[in-house]
Amino acid sequence: MDVTAIVFYTMGALIVIAGLGVSFASRDSLVTCLNFLVVMLSTGVIFLLLDAPMIAVLQILVWSGVTGLAMVFAVMLVGRDNRTFRPAGIRLTKIAGGLLVVIVLAEWLRFTADTRSSLPPVPPGYGDSGGLGVALYTDYLLVVELVSLLLLATLVSALVLVDRKAGR
């Protein structure tokens, strides 16, 4: 077992524990946010191990810099009490959600049965910021433009929603 494997399994354990904290820890919204942060940071480290450094930096920058902050801000606004759970009754959404979980886990088992190899060697140039940038602005230009349009729409609609005079 080499260093990468040790780091990977440590981070994996952290992700699962902190992920459970996000979804089921009932005490406090702030704790939920910080657990979420731990999940995102550990995922970033795993991305580093998987030779995707730019994605790792993007992950940590956006999730912890934007999402985490926005959520901490929301916690400040609405208070830290997070004890409310949904009532125990069975609804259609719950059945559908449960089914989704089962399907995903079954897919994984199927995948595991087929593929049991470790990762192939990295070809030179894989994971470079330059290569990713070129891919983004040549083959995937349309997607990038669509995302930028979406972000613009989000900006405008968020302003409209929050502005007292424009809203209502």
């Binding site: 989704l100 595991t112 470790s118």
Partner: peptide, 25 residues
């Protein structure tokens, strides 16, 4: 080295946790 199916497994478990969280929160 990291086995590929462990990466995917971690992803599946995290997905399950997230979906269950959406259901109970």
């Amino acid at each position: 080295m990291i086995p590929e199916h462990h990466v995917i497994g971690l992803s599946a478990i995290l997905f399950a946790i997230g979906v269950l969280g959406v259901l109970v929160r």
